[in-house]
Design a protein around this nucleic acid. Structure first.
Length: 236
DNA sequence: GCCCAGGTGGGTA
DNA sequence: TACCCACATGGG
């Protein structure tokens, strides 16, 4: 799903997207079986390596308890024990419980019950749940509920800082607005773009030396304004 | 043994 | 508002 040229002040965002898409192809995200698993993964991945989250999700599946009802009924200590590999397991057990408690109180345990609301309404509601912050809420909105909301995470911040489009003073909402106001609105595009950012960050930004491997690095002899900042900054 | 990873909430000045 | 800190495992 490469996107066509689109008249806006941040054509660079489109160029980056198209380049990432060309290199990595469609990502078909989020890596989960169904919307509920996306929500669980979004909470478990907070400040944690995804490979550790996979271990926790596998444990829940193995015990056949990866469902709203099963987690609702489960003792918090057992839940914490099962998700232990993903770190912060006591905190995350509480957060899963509070999310599921919300699901039952407001929507009978069914995530689809939220679909009647506007995306911004859904977002405010999700942010009201203890343990759900902006990134987790937006991941749920985009990847579980298919709403056109751009997800900003550490990878996004790092990559676009490197590209000179973001600086440390910008908050979550400001970075999100940069994408949402300068890209054609659409959940498929936002989905693919964020997934490509993650793929790029995992494959390349961890490489050493970092920027020399980066497909977003300007070609030799071609200079553009971001060029110097790209050299000066690091991904990390 | 050390550093880092797809955050969030609470406390303090 | 702006920091600082706790929360924790597993891999490189």
């Amino acid at each position: 799903m490469p996107i066509p040229n689109y008249p806006n002040p941040h054509r660079r965002l489109l160029k980056i997207y198209n380049l990432l898409y060309k290199v990595y192809g469609p990502r078909r995200w989020w890596p989960a079986d169904g919307a509920f698993e996306v929500c669980v993964g979004a909470i478990l991945t907070q400040n944690t390596n995804w490979s550790n989250v996979e271990k926790a999700i596998s444990a829940l599946k193995k015990q056949k308890v990866l469902s709203p009802l099963a987690i609702k009924k489960m003792d918090s200590r057992r839940l914490a024990r099962l998700i232990r590999p993903c770190g912060y397991y006591n905190v995350k057990a509480k957060r899963l419980k509070s999310f599921i408690s919300f699901l039952y109180k407001s929507h009978g345990g069914n995530l689809a019950g939220m679909q009647g609301l506007k995306p911004r309404q859904m977002r405010e509601i999700l942010l009201g749940i203890k343990g759900i912050g902006p990134e987790t809420a937006d991941s749920i909105l985009l990847y579980a509920l298919k709403k056109p909301i751009f997800v900003v995470d550490a990878y996004t911040r790092r990559l676009f800082t490197c590209q000179g489009l973001v600086d440390d003073s910008l908050g979550y909402d400001e970075i999100q607005s940069m994408f949402m106001e300068n890209l054609p609105t659409g959940s498929r595009l936002f989905n693919e773009y964020h997934a490509l950012i993650v793929e790029h960050a995992k494959r390349v930004c961890k490489a050493r030396p970092r920027c020399s491997h980066c497909v977003l690095r300007p070609k030799a002899g071609k200079s553009y304004k971001e060029d110097s900042s790209h050299e000066a900054r690091t991904h990390g």
